[in-house]
Simulated assay, not measured.
Amino acid sequence: MDIDAFVLANQPAWDRLDKLARRRNRLTGAEIDELVELYQRVATHLSIVRSGQTGGQADAVLVGRLSSLVARARSAVTGAHTPAWHEVVRFFTVSFPVVAYRARRWWIGAAVASLAVAYVIGAWIAANPDVQATIGTPAEIRQLVEHDFADYYSESPAASFAGHVWLNNAWVSMQLIMWSILLGVMIPWVLWQNAANLGVVAGLMHANGKAGVFWGLILPHGLLELSAVFLAAAVGMRLGWTVIDPGPRRRGEALAEQGRAVMSVALGLVAVLLVSGLIEAGVTPSGLPTPVRVGIGVLAEALFLTYVIVFGRRAERGGETGDIERPPDVAPSA
């Protein structure tokens, strides 16, 4: 059979496949079955033409035409790629909030433990002048409570300061998540250091009559910032625990799912910490009354927690885990 006879015999099938591929979103059940059958047949035709089995050399024009047709038919059979905007919407309405919501017990535990440590250390320092003396000289402590603490928030241009804070906080959160590789055993130590530093400064400020300054400057951005840090610690420790107790699934499969979910939190926290950094640079050192500045911080925290609870709980009830829609390591089983 020569190439002309081959084209003449199969042209109707090619035209029909082209028509079905163009109407991919408006096909009936029977037409979908026909599309699949024609796709397989034309793919075979393409192989025949490429191999020169039609009785002559492979026709480059015909190969190109059939290749394009098979590619469009394959897209129609397997489904088009999900639009980028759909992935972004899914990330912020499903992936990120559901992972945060499912880690809520770890999240609450990290927050309560850290704040308890900070409170104990702060109260101990505030009530013991001897302990304060081991931290610094009277002149150094006076410089901290009267100048350095407040000046930190206004000594740099707002835009530069916001960028610095954002990068620093994002790095701290990434460290917490990265420690999950070692079963999360170092995460409590990182939280301890963070809580201890907070407690030391709080204790010194309270002991020197600067409690109002401390809380007025730390609360506007600190609520959201600490929530992000505690969430990073929570998902990191949860991933580490998955190594020990993977549940009913195979350990490798559970780790893969939880690992991808942790990456969702890592990306989501970039956005959360950006908001925190903007508040720290623009609201914390501003001339707004203290109740207004604190109110902005409380509002930002309330909106974030409401977002996680509403979207996270809804996604969890829908069976979502925060994993990608078609994970490569999950196969159907009976």
Rank of each mutant, 00 (worst) to 15 (best):
residue 13 A to G: 09
residue 35 L to T: 13
residue 36 V to Q: 12
residue 51 S to I: 05
residue 51 S to P: 00
residue 60 A to F: 01
residue 63 V to T: 14
residue 76 A to L: 01
residue 79 G to I: 10
residue 81 H to V: 09
residue 81 H to W: 05
residue 87 E to W: 06
residue 92 F to E: 12
residue 93 T to K: 09
residue 100 A to C: 11
residue 102 R to M: 05
residue 103 A to C: 06
residue 109 G to A: 06
residue 115 L to T: 07
residue 116 A to M: 11
residue 117 V to L: 15
residue 119 Y to H: 02
residue 120 V to R: 01
residue 122 G to V: 13
residue 123 A to T: 09
residue 124 W to L: 15
residue 131 V to Q: 10
residue 132 Q to T: 06
residue 133 A to T: 11
residue 134 T to L: 03
residue 137 T to G: 04
residue 154 S to R: 15
residue 157 P to Y: 06
residue 158 A to W: 08
residue 160 S to V: 01
residue 163 G to P: 11
residue 167 L to N: 09
residue 171 W to V: 12
residue 177 I to C: 09
residue 178 M to I: 04
residue 181 I to T: 05
residue 188 P to R: 01
residue 188 P to S: 02
residue 195 A to W: 06
residue 197 N to E: 10
residue 204 L to A: 01
residue 207 A to F: 07
residue 221 H to Q: 06
residue 223 L to H: 02
residue 227 S to Y: 12
residue 246 P to H: 08
residue 249 R to H: 07
residue 268 G to F: 13
residue 275 V to Y: 09
residue 276 S to T: 05
residue 277 G to H: 04
residue 284 T to C: 03
residue 292 V to R: 00
residue 292 V to Q: 02
residue 295 G to F: 12
residue 301 E to M: 15
residue 307 Y to F: 13
residue 314 R to F: 08
residue 316 E to P: 00
residue 317 R to Y: 08
residue 320 E to R: 14
residue 320 E to P: 02
residue 333 S to H: 09
